[in-house]
Amino acid sequence: MFAKMLIKLRKQKNLSQYQLADKLGFSRGQISNYEQGQREPDFETLKVIADFFNVSTDYLLTGKEKNKEDNLYFFDLEGLAEEEIEDIKEHIEYMKWRKQKKKKD
């Protein structure tokens, strides 16, 4: 999937492999190897590519953005009713709104 996503993103920016390699500080061969699926990037390289295209590493690897709600909660919601979870989500949204409002004032 990474190879397909790299090709897609590169073409969306109308960049050749040479141009992308130059912008990232890589060799054209390195880009070619990634796009042909002959090599996989290490973690640091993956982050550089994701930052350049302004996408997540999840998107580069899977073609899907991680659900925002997956990152909302750092505590265990197990055992809570759906209505209680919705109340928590609404409260978080309210707190975010209130914070934005304070910034504007």
Score class of each variant (00 low, 15 high):
Gly25Met: 02
Glu84Ser: 09
Glu65Gly: 00
Phe53His: 02
Phe2Glu: 01
Lys96Arg: 14
Glu83Thr: 15
Asp58Gln: 12
Lys11Asn: 12
Pro41Met: 00
Ala3His: 15
Lys13Leu: 12
Lys102Thr: 11
Pro41Cys: 00
Leu15Asn: 01
Ile49Lys: 00
Asn14Arg: 15
Ala21Trp: 08
Phe26Pro: 01
Glu40Cys: 05
Leu61Arg: 08
Lys4Cys: 02
Lys66Trp: 06
Asp58Met: 05
Asp42Ala: 01
Leu9Cys: 06
Gly63Arg: 01
Phe43Val: 12
Asp87His: 14
Lys4Met: 04
Asp42Ser: 01
Met95Ser: 09
Met5Lys: 15
Lys68Asp: 15
Ala50Phe: 06
Gln19Lys: 15
Glu44Ala: 08
Glu82Tyr: 10
Lys47Asn: 09
Leu20Lys: 04
Asp105Gly: 12
Thr45Ile: 03
Ile85Gln: 09
Phe43Trp: 10
Lys66Phe: 05
Met95Phe: 14
Asp87Glu: 13
Gly29Gln: 14
Ser32Leu: 03
Gly25Ile: 07
Leu15Thr: 06
Pro41Asp: 03
Asp42Arg: 11
Met95Arg: 15
Ile7Ala: 04
Asp70Tyr: 09
Leu24Thr: 05
Glu83Asp: 12
Leu24Lys: 04
Gln36Trp: 02
Gly25Val: 05
Gln17Lys: 09
Asp70Asn: 13
Glu44Phe: 09
Thr57Gln: 07
Gln36Arg: 15
Phe53Gly: 01
Gln30Glu: 01
Asn54Lys: 13
Phe26Ile: 02
Asp42Val: 06
Lys66Thr: 13
Lys104Ala: 09
Arg28Met: 05
Glu40Leu: 01
Glu82Asp: 09
Gln30Cys: 07
Lys4Tyr: 08
Asn67Tyr: 08
Lys102Arg: 13
Gln17Val: 04
Gln17Cys: 01
Asp51Cys: 00
Glu84His: 14
Phe2Lys: 01
Glu40Met: 10
Leu9Glu: 13
Ile7Val: 15
Ser27His: 13
Leu80Val: 08
His91Phe: 10
Gln100Thr: 14
Leu60Trp: 09
Leu77Asp: 03
Lys47Asp: 05
Leu77Trp: 07
